[in-house]
Amino acid sequence: MRRLTWSVGLGLLVAVGTAGLGWWTVPIVGLGAGWLGRRRKDIALLTALGAGLAWGGLLAGLAWHAPLGPLLGRLAMLFALPAAGVVGLTVLFPMLLAWSAATLARRIGQWTMPAASQS
């Protein structure tokens, strides 16, 4: 349950940040989560999940009031990917970004912690 809370919370943070400031809030949130959650082994995974949920949710929200079909077809041709691949790329991108940022931040955070308190 706590894991879900972490993911949803981080997802909300990423969604709000993306909507307000842009894509770069994803690595920022990833770095922050990795640092603050450095005691958790699964923090990078949870952050990635949250970021994927966030961008997937934003995309679903967009599709709710603007049909994405025509655009999706053209983007698929543009990127030389199947349509599902374009959606997948849009979700995978923030996940990888968040995961990598959180992983590094967590490691750096651990280096700065007293050895005894490292997990």
């Binding site: 993306t18 909507a19 842009g22 894509w23 770069w24 994803v26 961008w55 934003l58 995309l59 967009l62 994405l68 655009l71 983007l75 790329l89 849009t90 991108f93 970004l97």
Partner: peptide, 11 residues
Amino acid sequence: GPLLDPIHGVW
């Protein structure tokens, strides 16, 4: 990043 951003990007 800016291209795939669901709010400000190509979507």
